[in-house]
Nucleic acid binder design. Sequence first.
DNA 1: GCGACAG
DNA 2: ATCTTGTCGC
Length: 235
Amino acid sequence: MDTHSSGGGERAAWPRSADEALAEQERLRALADLTSPGPAPGNVRLVAGVDVSYATQGDALVAAAVVLDAATLETVEVSVVEGTVTFPYVPGLLAFRELPSVITALEKLTCSPDLLVCDGYGIAHPRRAGLAVHLGVLTALPCFGVAKTPFVFGHDNVGEERGAAAPLTSDDGEVVGRALRTQRGVKPVFVSVGHAISLDHACAHTLQLAFRYRLPETTRRADHLSRERLRAITR
DNA sequence: GCGACAG
DNA sequence: ATCTTGTCGC
């Protein structure tokens, strides 16, 4: 996958301070495509999931990208990158901590995904610029986020059945995401768009990918891979 | 001012 | 994110 020259994606300007990060975040937010419907599940051939695992001791980390055939959900390619922490965890600035190694992993892929799924939020973020916004703009690929825990926006009760949902709404009444129940008997996940895809399509993809478990297969496989490699180099 | 706060 | 024991359910 070519994340630089021909992709049309923005080149990253990785900041060293929180001030520089806020400026870069605002720059990327302004470039996000929040109006295109993007690909529906039937129009995606390859979907990629990414995740990062961190060592308890030291600053080692491992990023993984997993590409699935959207039709069969079979893994068609994986990419794992060993790296080092270069930015602290700051709520609202997670992209600067996770994305450098994630982008490296995506660049190592030989195939080109049609869609990216993140672990975390897109526009359901204090400044409308979560992980999925950054990654979508930087790669110029449709991208959305599926988060496991609440962040800044609440929601009404979600029905018990698979597919039940409730909007995440900002103070100004704007719908910025959706709490979505992917399985009966599990907590909802939180879906929000990042770039070049609609919330409806993002939720449709999430349900298709989370056919068996709470989380999408993209996230589960990327998580397993990064965790497995980390433990291999951590001992 | 204080607490809350994706991963 | 990571650490960590037992426990409940399919």
